[in-house]
Design a protein around this nucleic acid. Structure first.
Lengths: 224, 224
DNA sequence: CCGGATGATGAGACTATCGTCATAGCGTCA
DNA sequence: TGACGCTATGACGATAGTCTCATCATCCGG
């Protein structure tokens, strides 16, 4: 369930927003001051709805602080301040949308859907090839629906191979990119790691995807 | 230079928008119908400004077609239709923002900046705090312009602290997130790693940024 | 079909990383 | 100020990750 943090100091409006969000199937966290907002903003909030005028300070400053750290989560500013300067200031401070009070609850929901939709595509960057997928931030590799338990070097090697999928990569290229030195060319370190990677990567009974190109290097992808 | 496609059939408004964008340093492509828009979109466009009522059809249908193929580029809908149903329909069709005519050119520019800012985030994701910055894909941490040579655990710990900057994190929270187990609470592993991290993170002669909150936990950021 | 070259593989050595422990330092409160 | 509890720190041992080496398998040209 997606969690939304609502920062709003008017009790009636806060209650009304929270109720609507609950009914729409979102999880909600409510804050009526910047102080309590700071407490509730942990990394697993998916969206923030922010009123600007709060008892203990200006919401824009809080927003700037947040954006200095991270571009997530998206922030939808909801405020009575409708002057153009205010709108520009809000958006430039890092807001992802700016909605002026009074607003229709339907429009609020539509804008929430829009922001969350955008988040989904924005999830961790990854590389993939066929049924193989590597999340570059959590550093997890999955083949089909089976997680692969790889060591660091094996993962680095695999990422390099996926990034250069369906083309031959020489040992020199691998040494330079994965080992950051050329010396590795003189030993058979690469062969050893390719070997270890194959054991975990290939599925017995299915055609291999990590091929040796004799005299040239390796190739990840469809047989040449 | 970032390129913006403007789809608008009122010649005066179209000209005015294009001029403003040019002056702001954007590249512009102009279309006064869906037909010409289809032609121009095949080029590399970073953002689309879309009027809904066009001579040869409804912009929303065109938007839906586009979104069926790709979530890029972002689309900013600009229209005279200001009914709530219209706004909801536009956002749900895949628009990334919805601006009602007449609008201030300053707000249009602010919303364009907002949308493009998000696109830029396509580079490696990172977290930062003050002069500290961590690239989450290359897994490198930099303080000022000095790279920090951190071990895996130290980096994981630092990422967690930055993500929860300026708030107290307890040992239990750290154990759960970084070690993925509660057992670490019973030893002083965390203290040891915090200690090692401090040696590499703190700059002698400058105020510390990784504080101990006696009896509670640790805090990364400004002194409490 | 043979021999040299190239790549694969298992075992073990080396090493960086990590966790534990003992002890020292420091704050806090009576 | 003294004692207690919490935190810092250096050293050491355990472990997982990485590399080396010897040997085996396979390919390809005579």
């Amino acid at each position: 369930m997606q969690r939304i943090l609502v920062i709003e100091d008017q009790p009636n409006l806060l209650r009304s927003i929270v109720r609507t969000l609950d009914e729409s199937g979102f999880g909600t966290l409510a804050a009526d001051s910047l102080k309590s907002a700071r407490k509730l903003l942990s990394q697993d909030v998916d969206l923030v709805i922010l009123d600007l005028m709060l008892p203990d300070g200006n919401g824009l400053e809080w927003l700037s602080e947040l954006r200095a750290i991270s571009k997530r989560p998206p922030v939808l500013v909801v405020t009575a301040r409708d002057a153009i300067e205010d709108r520009v200031a809000g958006l430039d401070a890092g807001a992802d949308d700016y909605l002026v009070k009074p607003f229709a609850i339907e429009e609020l929901l539509a804008r929430i859907r829009m922001l969350l939709r955008r988040e989904q595509g924005d999830s961790n960057p990854f590389v993939s090839l066929g049924d193989l997928r590597i999340d570059l931030v959590s550093r997890t590799a999955v083949r089909g629906n089976q997680a692969l338990d790889l060591q660091n070097r094996q993962l680095e090697l695999l990422i390099y191979l996926v990034r250069n999928a369906n083309q031959i990569v020489t040992r020199e290229m691998i040494a330079k990119s994965v080992w950051k030195e050329d010396t590795a060319t003189w030993t058979n370190v690469i062969a050893v790691h390719v070997n270890q990677l194959r054991k975990k990567l290939e599925i017995p009974g299915q055609p291999a995807i990590l091929h040796t190109i004799r005299g040239q290097g390796y190739l990840l992808g469809d047989a040449p």
